[in-house]
Deep mutational scan, measured.
Amino acid sequence: EPLWIRPDAPSRCTWQLGRPASESPHHHTAPAKSPKILPDILKKIGDTPMVRINKIGKKFGLKCELLAKCEFFNAGGSVKDRISLRMIEDAERDGTLKPGDTIIEPTSGNTGIGLALAAAVRGYRCIIVMPEKMSSEKVDVLRALGAEIVRTPTNARFDSPESHVGVAWRLKNEIPNSHILDQYRNASNPLAHYDTTADEILQQCDGKLDMLVASVGTGGTITGIARKLKEKCPGCRIIGVDPEGSILAEPEELNQTEQTTYEVEGIGYDFIPTVLDRTVVDKWFKSNDEEAFTFARMLIAQEGLLCGGSAGSTVAVAVKAAQELQEGQRCVVILPDSVRNYMTKFLSDRWMLQKGFLKEEDLTEKKPWWWHLRVQELGLSAPLTVLPTITCGHTIEILREKGFDQAPVVDEAGVILGMVTLGNMLSSLLAGKVQPSDQVGKVIYKQFKQIRLTDTLGRLSHILEMDHFALVVHEQIQYHSTGKSSQRQMVFGVVTAIDLLNFVAAQERDQK
């Protein structure tokens, strides 16, 4: 057995438009009618409502009807409940999964919650491996369901041993009777949507819809739904939504950006999952974080739909894509998950301010006199920076000697690579993860907040409520011999709460 199987392995699926269902090699399930009293909570997966979006479509000038398939009504709160249950049931049916076995899954959280929910009911041990950027709410729900959680670096490539995929496979090879159901490759993922989600949409719309818009992560949702719609409703256009920084969209030119990270969760990847059939997507749109969270908040405030950030991405694209539809036509959007997962993220004004998705003037509360002053007023001194090749031991000596707790790590040209902190280095040394002679590049981390000289002290204040420091950066445009230009970030300084307090105190003292 291989040590790991690539999540982007070539698909062996034989589905073709027009091929009889009787030739399918898979076990198919028909939607079942729910009894009045459910035998367990797993029976509350599927049969989610279709809700008309009344205000947002009109606000953006849509002539067509805009409908939302509300997947956050599933038992675990997301569309991923469907595939989690289906993968477990299919693994039980073919004898792969037996009582007492362990389920391991690399996930952005929602599939993990679905699997942990099913594992709690069915009696399996469950280990979820997820990147650090995923919300604390997801972690809390997983723990409450009895799952064990392993976190991995957000910026690790999918084929790196440190990625959530790599760590999951390492655990599988170490733990007896453990299984990775593997949402990236498992046919049960798109089949769950082909058999149930798509049929529900067709039934709820009486077979009449002209466009379907869905955000894409593993691709199982859009693949399964689109294949069924292509068979039953061939005139329906399928629109895929991919965040900026991901590479799922086609044509490839759409993916060209210097951005590699994004805040919206559960969609987009740096590889093409095996289950994603991009041939059934008629057109791709890219979405960005700001519009995703703005539209998610709009869905909550104006439509009462308590959905997550990827739902915002989907609707932001839908109001663009559906401009081509006329009166009497219908566009369906998939709202994948609930706001429950993001209470401390985009639902929080403070978080939105820190990330730059909300401006101070958007909030009406009274601010102190210094709130709208610029960061450049602080008069920061030149920063202490270190090269990635310097040793951890030497870096600790320098920081202690100069009285700093942290320093930016830059390359020879001064471009920011990340940050090192005294606390992080000492804990890594004590844990045996690094040696004093190791290069400081081994303990770089990139989960820090950046701020510009033109940003306000109010925004800085919000950042420092949650973080010990902020890195002050400025952009530099560099022209190359080819005539092309590129933008790079340079370090201007490091600012802490002490710097802000000293500035405010000094100004008030001078005024007296």
Rank of each mutant, 00 (worst) to 15 (best):
A506L: 05
E465M: 04
N424T: 04
G414N: 02
A249K: 04
A322E: 01
V504Y: 15
A470G: 12
L500A: 15
V386N: 04
F346S: 03
E303T: 13
I334Y: 00
V332I: 11
L457I: 14
D349F: 02
A321K: 04
I444K: 03
S287R: 04
E324V: 15
G245Y: 01
L358F: 11
N424W: 11
L422Y: 04
F271D: 00
L471C: 09
N502W: 08
R278L: 04
Q439A: 10
K345N: 03
L353I: 14
F469D: 05
L422I: 14
G240D: 08
T274A: 02
I334L: 08
V443N: 09
E465T: 02
K449F: 09
Q511P: 04
V315G: 08
A321R: 08
F285S: 12
T279Q: 14
F295L: 11
K366G: 09
A249H: 04
I498H: 03
P408N: 00
S338P: 04
N341S: 05
V504F: 15
T294S: 11
V317L: 12
V241K: 00
P383R: 06
Q450C: 11
A413Q: 15
C331W: 05
V241Q: 07
W284C: 00
A431T: 12
A296L: 02
K359V: 12
Q487V: 14
W370L: 05
N341K: 05
Q478K: 14
T389I: 13
V440A: 12
E324D: 14
T395N: 09
V317H: 07
V494Y: 02
D362N: 03
T456L: 13
E324A: 10
G304V: 00
S428F: 12
D242T: 01
H474R: 04
C307N: 06
G356A: 06
K402L: 15
R278G: 07
E377W: 07
L417N: 10
L305Y: 09
L276N: 01
M298W: 12
I238R: 00
E258F: 15
E263A: 15
Q302W: 11
L347V: 03
T421S: 11
P436F: 13
D277Y: 02
V332D: 00
S313R: 03
G432L: 15
K446E: 07
G245M: 01
G393V: 14
K484L: 14
V440T: 01
I477Y: 08
L305K: 04
D510R: 10
V264H: 01
K359R: 15
G441I: 12
A311R: 03
F503N: 08
D289H: 01
S461G: 14
A497Q: 10
L358V: 11
W284D: 00
I498P: 12
F503I: 02
E361G: 13
E244D: 10
R278H: 02
Q487F: 14
Q302S: 15
D282V: 13
Q376L: 12
L422V: 14
G240C: 07
D467I: 02
Q256A: 15
T344F: 01
P383D: 02
Q256L: 14
M298C: 09
K484N: 13
Q302A: 03
S287V: 09
G266L: 00
L378P: 05
P251I: 06
N255S: 07
M298K: 14
Q447H: 14
P383S: 14
L500Y: 09
W351N: 00
M466N: 03
Y262C: 05
H394Q: 11
I267Y: 06
L299P: 04
S348E: 14
V495N: 08
D405L: 02
E291H: 03
G266C: 01
A470D: 02
N255K: 04
F503W: 10
A382S: 11
P251D: 02
T454I: 14
H462L: 14
I247K: 10
Q450A: 10
M419W: 13
S313Q: 07
V375M: 12
D289R: 00
F285K: 04
L248E: 04
L248K: 05
R452A: 09
T482R: 14
I272K: 07
A301S: 04
V333Y: 05
G304E: 01
V386M: 11
H480Q: 14
S348A: 11
E303C: 03
L399P: 02
Q354H: 11
L471K: 03
Y445D: 09
T482V: 11
L347G: 00
L380G: 10
D499M: 00
I238M: 08
V434H: 10
V281Q: 06
L399D: 02
E244K: 11
Q406C: 08
T456E: 10
L254R: 10
P251A: 08
L464N: 07
S246H: 01
L471M: 13
G309V: 01
D455Q: 08
G266A: 02
S481V: 12
I463H: 07
A505E: 12
A316Y: 12
K286H: 02
M490C: 12
I272Y: 06
Q376W: 08
L248G: 04
S246G: 03
E252A: 14
N502Y: 12
N424L: 12
T421E: 08
S381C: 13
V332F: 01
Q447Y: 09
D467S: 12
D467K: 08
Q487T: 14
V317N: 08
I444T: 09
E303M: 07
L417A: 06
L399K: 03
I444P: 12
Q478P: 14
G266T: 01
F295P: 09
F346E: 04
H372M: 04
D411W: 12
L430E: 14
V319D: 03
V375R: 03
S313H: 04
M425A: 11
E253W: 08
P388H: 07
L387E: 14
D411E: 07
L457R: 02
A506W: 08
A322K: 01
L335N: 01
G304D: 03
L254Y: 08
I444S: 15
N255C: 07
L358C: 07
Y262R: 00
G432R: 11
D411Q: 02
T261L: 07
E360Y: 14
E290L: 13
L417R: 13
T456K: 15
N288C: 15
G403H: 08
T454K: 12
V332N: 01
I334S: 01
T344I: 07
A249N: 04
Q511G: 12
N288D: 11
V443A: 12
P383C: 07
G309E: 05
A316K: 13
E252L: 15
L276Y: 03
K484M: 13
V280A: 13
T385K: 10
L429C: 12
P251R: 05
I463T: 15
G483N: 02
L426I: 08
K402M: 14
P408F: 05
L363K: 10
P383Y: 07
I334V: 15
G268R: 00
W369R: 03
V319A: 15
P436M: 10
V420F: 14
L422G: 11
C331V: 01
T261N: 11
G441E: 12
K345M: 05
K449E: 14
Y342E: 00
Y479I: 12
V434C: 14
L426W: 06
T274F: 00
R278Q: 05
L353H: 03
E508W: 09
S338Q: 06
S461W: 08
Q406K: 06
A505V: 15
I477K: 02
P388S: 14
S437F: 15
K446W: 14
R488S: 11
A301L: 14
L358E: 10
H372S: 10
L358G: 07
P336Q: 13
